[in-house]
């Protein structure tokens, strides 16, 4: 699904923020990306979601080697990825409903075909009564939930999330993780960057730990619940 081979990344002429990163995310896996702030988690996620090209090394995504992929092939690859990111804001002039429906519209689906799914998903994340609200009228946690709903609505092949439970209360956080686990059960490969050790230890999956831009550890996490 995702393969990194000796990937390095630097912004401009700055220092390398990722060095010789190699790992494999198998199809249908559930992985946590951990590490201190500045360890390179966000940069790694940006490389996976095709927001940035690597400075060196090879990235293979959905069996496609990115270095040799044609530019015209990238949009289709991007549509297979659901992203929950701080750099991935909601569109301020669209309602919660329209923001969530956006990936489906980009995929060319008709409203009649996705209307029920979008409503159900928004209800599931506790925003059934806020569908017509604009992002500016939503709290930080509510915006986070809209962003998560937007990331999962098209049932992506790969879901990557940067601190997805950071802005929500523990109960909603647990509910969102259950949503990710359910998607994972249906076949979506999940990669979550988090500082939350408890979340990592309580969820069945794998952990990739980054230290100063390098992969320090890859291990199976405990599986008390999922």
């Amino acid at each position: 699904m995702v393969r990194f081979e000796n990937v390095g990344m630097r912004y401009g002429s700055g220092p390398e923020v990722l060095r010789d990163v190699s790992f494999l995310l198998a199809q249908g896996s559930f992985t946590f990306l951990t590490g201190l702030s500045g360890a390179g988690k966000t940069t790694l996620l940006k490389l996976i979601c095709l927001a940035e090209p690597p400075s060196r090394g090879l990235i293979t995504l959905f069996g496609e080697e990115l270095a040799t992929a044609r530019r015209g092939e990238l949009p289709a690859l991007r549509r297979r990825i659901g992203v929950v990111f701080q750099d991935f804001p909601l569109l301020s002039h669209l309602s919660a409903y329209d923001n969530v429906a956006l990936p489906l519209r980009l995929a060319g689906k008709r409203e009649a075909d996705y209307h029920r799914d979008v409503r159900e998903l928004l209800s599931w994340v506790g925003l059934g009564d806020r569908m017509t609200s604009k992002p500016a009228t939503l709290s930080g946690g509510e915006q986070q939930r809209v962003a998560i709903a937007r990331a999962v609505v098209a049932r992506p092949d790969l879901l990557i999330a940067d601190e997805p439970t950071g802005n929500v209360d523990p109960e909603m956080g647990a509910k969102l993780i259950r949503l990710f686990a359910e998607l994972n059960r249906l076949g979506t490969t999940v990669l979550i960057a988090t500082h939350d050790r408890m979340l990592v230890e309580e969820t069945r999956g794998r952990e990739i730990r980054l230290v100063e831009g390098q992969v320090m550890e890859m291990r199976q996490t405990a599986a008390r619940s999922a």
């Binding site: 979601c49 949009p75 991935f88 804001p89 990936p103 980009l106």
Partner: peptide
């Protein structure tokens, strides 16, 4: 930013 976001979401 909006153009960049739509591009990142896979819009052609």
């Amino acid at each position: 930013d909006m153009v960049a976001l739509l591009h990142q979401m896979g819009a052609r």
